[in-house]
């Protein structure tokens, strides 16, 4: 670091359907940007070294660890967090399934699990056991022992198949609606 303060960088990123610009220290992690600068505190921090998955968000529809990513790396991309899922108070089918199947206890890991599952079900509406394990295997829950989480994701998959929509498709529609009046910047 030089004597003078580290230069800030301008970042423009779309978060939950809204384009936002900010000036940040380059070292700001995406997780801190979401939580501290944007107040989107549903994305949690459990380890800050990429292992636990509590901070998982979607980047252009792919589940990534926001704790080991810089906010500047997300510039020009679309970030989706747990806050985008419920639509006017109505839970997203994935959220509802976690409630129905008791896929949570303390709920600290839950947003991460839901975001990871959202990516999976968008790509693969009827995942095999192996595919489910592969995705859920990248997220740690200390409370539930996982069985109920597997059931929750299965249940959500079934409901989504019945509705004939993908989890993110559903979201895109809701975001458009919510962002419509005075949306954008």
């Amino acid at each position: 670091m030089d004597e003078d303060k580290p230069a800030r960088v301008a970042v423009t990123v779309t978060v939950n359907g809204r384009r936002l610009s900010a000036e940040l220290e380059p070292r700001t992690t995406l997780a801190d940007f979401l939580r501290v600068d944007l107040g989107l505190t549903g994305t949690h921090l459990g380890c800050e070294h990429g292992v636990c998955g509590a901070c998982t968000v979607l980047l252009d529809g792919r589940a990534v660890r926001s704790c080991i990513m810089l906010a500047v790396q997300a510039a020009g991309h679309e970030v989706t967090t747990i806050e985008a899922l419920a639509n006017e108070g109505e839970l997203h089918p994935l959220q509802q399934a976690f409630v129905d199947k008791h896929g949570l206890q303390c709920g600290f890991c839950t947003p991460g699990f839901i975001m990871a599952a959202a990516e999976l079900l968008e790509r693969d509406p009827d995942p095999t056991e192996q595919a489910l394990l592969e995705t859920l295997g990248g997220q740690v829950c200390r409370c539930t022992g996982y069985e109920a989480i597997i059931e929750s994701v299965r249940d959500a998959a079934e409901k989504l198949r019945q509705q004939g929509v993908g989890p993110l498709e559903l979201l895109a529609a809701a975001l458009e609606k919510n962002a419509a009046p005075g949306g954008g910047e």
């Binding site: 990429g50 998955g53 998982t56 980047l59 792919r62 589940a63 990534v64 660890r65 080991i68 990513m69 990871a116 990516e119 999976l120 592969e134 995705t135 295997g137 990248g138 997220q139």
Partner: peptide, 12 residues
Amino acid sequence: LRHVAHPQNRNQ
């Protein structure tokens, strides 16, 4: 590749 970390890490 399937042995490398988890999908959420491999996405990045």
